[in-house]
Amino acid sequence: MTTTNHTLLEVRNLTKEFPLRKGFFNRTQGSIKAVSDVSFTINRGETLGLVGESGSGKTTIGRSLLRAIEPSSGKVLFHMDEGQTVDVTSLGMNELRTFRRNMQMIFQDPYSSLNPRMTVRDIIAEPLVVNGTSNRTEIDAQVRDIALRCKLNIEHLRRFPHAFSGGQRQRIGIARALALNPAFIVCDEAVFALDVSVQAGVINLLQDLQVELNLAYLFIAHDLSIVEHISDRVAVLYLGRLVELAATPKLFANPFHPYTEALLSAIPEADPDQPMRPVALAGEIPNPANPPSGCYFHPRCRYAEEICKTTTPEWKEYQPGHFAACHFAGELALKGVENVKEGEA
């Protein structure tokens, strides 16, 4: 994988295993690989969309990058503005705590992500307080500044979260994530829980902030229309492994992996004149504790051949910027979404 001086974050062979405990003595009996061998990069100021179905490991990747959960192996390299590179995965607890200001997170549930016992002002101020800003007037000034940026009403800062609806709460969550001026934010299903009419406002806010502050997002979602709308590039995950990664229009117009094709065909278009023609996938998503041999997708893939059952396909760059893990990447005539032009963007 090539890195340029635009690269902000580099993920190499990230793996996360969860021990599988059983029995009276809680003994570890094997493990579930929630994420295996995932590698990708994120550039400064770009949005990488991460899609996959439930249990595919999206959230685990997002949290591992921030070390909200500890990855089992692999590296996460963060390229600072000053040119130096920090290996996030090898930081000690104290170093990590001070490093955290560079990477933040926006959560899915606007209700459980705000402490109901703190005022909005205190919630937004917490990252500042924790990181050593102790002057009250300075904190207040910064909180106001961030709140304004996130289009929150300054008058409401003394209220508690229970005074707010989902959309406003999510703005408070965004404001908290911005308090330390990070370069990278993980948005974990950040608009999923919001009402449709409110969702657009939050998406627009995220896009505006990205331009203003040159933020990079890892945008985790399962709604493909939203991912297509907000992402520069999209990565597709299946059972803990990346199956495809490409620039958004490329991936949507001309997918290389049969699973991507199936996902795209299942998008319910908000247009009665474009009826959905979903590719039928055989069977169900396999149990991650007992994944199939070879290519994880082969039991459900209509193009699968003998090699797919035995050999794990390699994660390769088939065209510039277009990665896939499929033995027949580029050889199959896969259908994308018709009204996306590959040359767009």
């Binding site: 896009q207 229009p249 009204n339």
Partner: peptide, 27 residues
């Protein structure tokens, strides 16, 4: 106006560069 705005507020595949029209305020 609610229906009109709601339809403008959802992203549609293939129109990625158009800005979404958010409905002001909250439910």
């Amino acid at each position: 106006p609610y229906t009109v705005n709601l339809l403008k507020a959802i992203p549609k595949v293939g129109q990625s560069r158009t800005r979404l029209a958010a409905i002001e305020g909250n439910v």
